[in-house]
């Protein structure tokens, strides 16, 4: 996987948001934080908990000037039906059907040929500031992604398990 301080590879993928299809790119997200999360497939019984999890907290991510893109190797038609099935999703689902973006972000499962459960937080300059991945059978913590984003947005040193509202550690603060 790519890691901290790596430049996020540029991409342009078709995506579905509120039933409409258009192209979404990394460039478009410049000037914003971007939560780029990959998931294995539409129409499964584990992924919806993550996809809807990000959707439920989309407002909180937005308050941090963050955009969210969900990416899988499914086609846009599948994303559209899947979003409908889940009762609407508050961010675009992008289609990486040729798997080039999953490959560029080093999140393509070698045997299954689908993206693993990986999350990247990309800063407004397009640099990766957080990356995490979990086992195919274990859904990731959306709240943890939000916590890390908020911590990154403070621009300060945040101790372990820091939560918004708690003191951050300036140069004068000793841990």
């Amino acid at each position: 996987m790519l890691t901290i301080a790596d430049a996020a590879p540029d991409f342009s993928l078709p995506g579905v948001y509120q039933g409409k299809t258009r192209s979404y790119s990394l460039r478009e997200a410049r000037g914003h934080w971007l939560v780029l999360f990959f998931y294995p497939a539409d129409f499964t019984f584990v992924c919806p908990t993550e996809v809807t999890g990000f959707s439920k907290l989309a407002g909180d991510f937005s308050k941090e000037r963050a955009m969210i893109y969900g990416v899988s190797v499914d086609p846009v038609e599948s994303h559209r039906s899947w979003a409908e099935e889940l009762g609407g999703i508050a961010y675009p689902l992008l289609s990486d059907t040729d798997k080039s973006v999953s490959r560029a972000y080093q999140v393509l499962h070698p045997r299954e040929g689908v993206a693993i459960r990986a999350t990247y937080l990309i800063d407004p300059e397009g640099i990766i500031q957080y990356s995490a991945a979990s086992n195919m059978n274990v859904g990731r913590s959306v709240e943890e992604s939000l916590r890390v984003l908020r911590a990154l947005c403070t621009g300060k040193l945040c101790p372990a398990d820091w939560k918004p509202g708690e003191p951050t550690g300036g140069p004068e603060h000793k841990y």
Binding site: A41, S78, E85
Partner: peptide, 9 residues
Amino acid sequence: AREACYRIV
């Protein structure tokens, strides 16, 4: 198709 499988299951 995956979508059909999901609905059937």
